[in-house]
Nucleic acid binder design. Structure first.
Ligand SMILES: [Mn+2]
Ligand SMILES: [Mn+2]
Ligand SMILES: [Mn+2]
Ligand SMILES: [Mn+2]
Lengths: 223, 223
DNA sequence: TAATATCATAAGGTTTGCCTATTAATTAAT
DNA sequence: ATTAATTAATAGGCAAACCTTATGATATTA
């Protein structure tokens, strides 16, 4: 499936759709939110992407990626995550900054560069934030995990991935040790959507529920 | 000197100015030609860059870079040439393709990435096409050399740099061995702006004068 | 000095992506 | 089941960078 080069803006919309919904329907409002544009802009873009055959839009219901749209979106994810690996492992750029810097490079990366980069990196399977890197054909198995925000009090869990994109949020989590492979215990959950209290590397850490949603974990069964 | 991020288009104009004129005045028409835009577009852009203090425009004379404009332009060159080094030496991308691929990446490269890349590469001094890489502060000593097109018949020369930007032109030169460090002899120069006949690696090669202009050489004195 | 070539501006158009304000549809609450 | 609140979509418009064609203005050169 050959497609003309897409604009940066278009690529960011497609990436947001696959991140937000995968193969499911996504509300246009969620997209607008995620991309920090008005819902008007998101609607307009959905109309254009619909005309290009990249999405299918059912008014008042939401949008889904077509096969072509999904391929394009996964390819953006591939570029993004490969650059994250390079920036982190080779250029020694700080973990919280990696997302934002890769998010610029991803749109300026021709297929020849993507594949040469993947080879240079040794075909890595996951990015520094723990998410899988789609294969050259676009496919990948999504991470099986749950949000830290739904782990019950007393539960032990291992961090699989961090889904935040804001550098400040990543920095906040990084400074508290909340990165992939880290093990955490939920010590307390304050009522009324209050913060969690976690035990991380022997220290107690308070974490707002909204932030905990970004953290994808697997439960460690009690031994 | 802090300046707001410039658009890709703006960066390409600035880069063209420093490539075409260095510190000299450049005719707006030359710029338009180089960038494949109409002279109307180039004029409009020069007005805008003038307002931003990046260039100084004397109507009917031409444009020069201001100090600020020169710094911005040299920074683009730095990013471009660092990426060229990376693509060529580490990603093993073919020499003729490197320029075009780096020309996309250069505009998506934050200062942190530029400097980390330079460190990763070991602060290289020249790009794969032979041109010097400006330092972080923007300064660099331009290559001292002459165009192959002005070397007299019988002259021996060593290629210092190739200034072409079109991938097909680079491929054409590459296939004939005309890359930096290669030694050539001018065997014959056809009249009426006709092609040169060169001896390159023991073979005779015909090269149009327009192409020879892209090749920057130093004379090898007769021993 | 006059003809020619080059350069600049005027006026108007296209594309892409954004916005505010308004209207329509859906969903939730009486 | 209506009404109210929320959410989604459209109408209309703005701006940045491109473009074209037409028209002056300056510089070169014959
Ligand atoms: Mn991006
Ligand atoms: Mn470029
Ligand atoms: Mn106008
Ligand atoms: Mn409209």
């Amino acid at each position: 499936m050959i497609l003309q080069p897409l604009s940066e803006s278009t690529e960011m919309y497609l990436k947001a759709m696959v991140e937000l919904g995968g193969r499911e329907v996504v509300a246009v409002g969620r997209l607008a939110e995620r991309l920090s544009v008005t819902s008007v802009s998101a609607n307009e873009m959905m109309r254009r992407l619909g005309e290009q055959g990249l999405v299918s839009h059912t008014p008042y219901k939401g949008v889904t990626l077509t096969q072509m749209g999904r391929e394009a979106a996964c390819n953006v994810l591939r570029r993004q995550r490969l650059w994250e690996c390079f920036l982190y492992a080779h250029l020694k750029i700080e973990w919280p900054q990696v997302y934002e810097l890769a998010c610029d490079l991803e749109h300026a990366t021709a297929p020849a560069v993507t594949e040469a980069l993947a080879a240079f990196l040794g075909q890595p399977s996951h990015c520094p934030y723990g998410d899988p890197i789609p294969a050259a054909d676009g496919e990948f198995e999504p991470l099986l995990g749950i949000s830290l925000s739904v782990v019950g009090v007393g539960g032990h869990a291992r961090i699989l991935a961090v889904r935040a994109t804001d550098t400040d949020v990543l920095k906040y989590l990084y400074e508290r040790g909340l990165v992939p492979a880290c093990e955490v215990q939920v010590v307390e959950a304050a009522p009324l959507q209050g913060p969690l209290t976690l035990r991380v590397n022997g220290k107690e850490v308070a974490l707002g529920l909204a932030l905990a949603e970004f953290v994808i974990v697997e439960i460690i069964p009690a031994s």
